[in-house]
Amino acid sequence: MSLDRSTVRTIAYLARLRVAEDQLDALATELSAILDFVEQLNTVDTGGVEPMTSVAHIQLPLRADAVSDGGAPDTVLANAPLPIDGTYAVPKVVE
């Protein structure tokens, strides 16, 4: 599988990663090499095999659906880059 510049640009947008135009070719080459490597899995017969979605070797317990923490807005906002009046501020999203 060979990725081209425009595919890399699209993936980068989906991942919300700014990638400079002059890096697209190099990235396309690197990512294509990784995809070539992982494509060996196509040679494995997985007919009738259920995908493994959990590695846990035991039944995991449910917890009570109850509030166990909270009431600490200052702590929650302590690492926010731009806290304003107890909220996270972001650029305007609605005109």
Binding site: Y13, A15, R16, L17, R18, V19, N79, A80, P81, L82, Y88, V90, P91, V93
Partner: peptide, 23 residues
């Protein structure tokens, strides 16, 4: 995403802020 914690690199729009921050 530059909103709740960690680095934020400003952008004109929310999308641009995400992209700049993560880039």
């Amino acid at each position: 995403d530059g909103v709740r914690f960690g680095l934020r690199v400003p952008g004109e729009t929310l999308d641009e802020m995400y992209q700049n921050t993560r880039g």
